[in-house]
Every structure is written in C-alpha cells, then in structure tokens.
Simulated assay, not measured.
Amino acid sequence: GAENMISIGVATAAAGLIIGTVSLTGAHQVIGELVEVLSGGSLILMLLLVAVMCLILGMGLPTTANYIVVSSLMAPVIVSVGAQSGLIVPLIAVHLFVFYFGILADDTPPVGLAAFAAAAISQGDPIRTGLQGFAYDIRTAILPFIFIFNTDLLLIDVTVLQGVIIFIVAATAMMLFGAATQGFWIVKSRWWETATLLLIAFTLVRPGYWIDQIQEPWSSLAISEATLDQANLDGQVRLTIEGPDFDNPDQLTQLVLLIQADSTITLASALDQAGVLARAEQASILLDEPFPGTENFQTMQRFDFYGDTPVEITDIAMEQTHRLTKEWMYLPALFLLVIVGWSQRTRRSKEV
C-alpha cells in the first residue's frame, strides 16, 4: 500500500506545483477571460475551447493529477462563464466534462502516453498510433456534452423508468454520432444521411433545444416592488444580477441564479431564504451583501457591494411549466431514423 501511495503522492505534488504556479501568476483568471472572449457568449464554442484546453493540460499527467489539474483550473471556467450565459449545471456534470477530455489526452499526440505504450507493444509509430486512437476516441466525445445539456443522464431526481429510457436514448445517440462521423451505418452513408444522423443525435442529446424554439422556456417579470411582493409564483425563478467586480470595481460582472419560488410565500421571502437580500428602490431592485453562511454567500462574493455602483437585479424570469415536454422530440427523431434506416437497408439489399 505504501509503495502504491508513492506514485500518487508524487503525482499530487506535481499537480499542486502546476496549480500553485497558475494561481500565483494569475493565469487561471486569464484562462477564463480568454475563453469568454474567444467564445463570444456561445455556449457550444465555450465548451469546445474548454475541451481543447483540458486536452492540453491533461497531457503527460497520470489519472489522479489529471483530475486535480483540470477540475481546479477548467471547471470554474465552465461554471463562471456558463452562468453569465444562463447555463447552470450540476458541479458533477462540469467535473465529468473536464475529466473526460483530460483523460482523452492520454492518446492525444504529441505526448500521448497511452499511445507510446500501445506503439511499443505493436511495434508501430507512436504518433500515428496516437492519431488513430484519438480519431476513435473523439467519436464518443458527444458523451460529456450530454452531461452538460442533458443532466438527466446523471440520474439526479429521476425514477427507475426514466433512468432506463435515458440510458437507451443516450446509447442510441452515441451510436448514431459514431456512425455519422465514420460515414457508415448499415452501408456507407450518403451526405444527407450523415447530416440526418448528426441531426438525430443532437435531438436525442438535447431535445429541449427544439422545444425552446417553439415555446419560450422563461417569461420575464417586471423589475418592481410589486414583483417582490407577488405570492402566486411556483417554480424556478431566474435572476440576472449585475454589479461591480470585487477585484476590479470599474468593471461590471454578471451572475445568473436560480431560485425556487413557492406560491405560499412572496418572492421577496423566497429570495431571503436563498440568502439574496433584495430591496426595491424606485424602478430598480438592489441587493445587499448576503450574510455569511447563507446559501449564496460564496457565489456572490464576486461583487463589490460597497462601491458607488450598486449591485442590482437586471432581469427576473419565471420558468414556463405549462409547455410541451422535451421527450416529444424523440418522435420526429425516431421518424427520421426510420427513413435513414430504410434507405440504407434498401441499398444493402440491392448490393447483395
């Protein structure tokens, strides 16, 4: 046991050196700002940039050190940048996302430790082995995106039946994504079949996207004292908060919070229970610093509550509960899958 702990201790120490160096030099803030600027507010582009950076950071690191590095440096980027764009996901989903691509670095050239080990066994070229392995692995890269956009796959607050359905749908989406990227399913795919398979995979992964295009997921509420006193709200309330940055008071920062409202109490009371101290002044809703130990105390430490510019709520939106469920989009996806399957089976029967 002690001998095994030596390698883990060395790996952890090396990871600590990397994290300490990045933290002391302020590079972790630069990484977040770089991702934010390059993504331009696009969630997909932000996640792709984080994935690439995790591949770079994970190169040459053993599993334990790999997780420590990518989770410490890149997970906060997804949380902070994503929250500014309205993407709020469980922390476990964020950690699984960055860890997946960090581990993928094991066979990503030019380092690719696993590729060098495999090449030594097969007597092949390490770089070519790594490229081929990466080409195979990247076809399953849709899985971490499923963690982000369809958190039901993590089996949080789902029934057994829902869990079975989620597993089948996710496995089907990954299979179709792999078939599309390799250009072959039943037979060699035509261009429109490849595009259709990608569309089906996307629909299975994130069916809620199409529902959002049909029906708005949120309805905005007025920024007023009357809204704070409203007591007939039941469901999630999305708050967009804006105020001066604690580290740079001249710069405004933004945060999106989800608050659970209850129809038996006012919105102001629900905010108080969540540690958000709101008060109405004229046509604005201003916020005071939360009390230590409350739910959102740590989250809101990014704001400077004592500057000349107040911290305020710029948008209040109520979740639309009476709309189509996202599972309805599985039906058109299944219909398209039948069409592609029929087309390919017809060609296969002719070839035989």
Rank of each mutant, 00 (worst) to 15 (best):
A2S: 14
A14M: 10
L17M: 11
G20C: 03
A27T: 12
H28A: 09
E33M: 07
E33L: 09
E36L: 03
E36F: 03
V50H: 00
C54H: 00
I56F: 07
M59W: 01
M59R: 01
P62A: 04
Y67W: 06
V69A: 11
V70H: 06
V79R: 13
A83R: 15
Q84M: 15
L87F: 13
Y100I: 04
V111L: 06
A119P: 08
A120R: 10
P126N: 02
D137Q: 05
A141Q: 02
A141Y: 02
P144G: 02
F145A: 03
I146S: 04
N150Y: 04
V164C: 05
I166M: 11
I168E: 02
A171E: 07
L176I: 10
F177N: 14
K188H: 04
A195R: 05
T196P: 03
I200D: 03
P207I: 05
W210T: 02
Q213I: 01
L221R: 10
A222F: 12
I223H: 09
I223Q: 08
L228H: 05
Q236F: 15
V237R: 11
R238G: 12
R238Y: 12
R238D: 13
F246Y: 12
T253W: 12
Q254R: 15
Q254V: 15
I259G: 14
G275C: 09
D288G: 05
P292F: 03
D315S: 15
E319C: 06
M329G: 02
Y330L: 11
A333T: 03
V338H: 11
T346I: 02
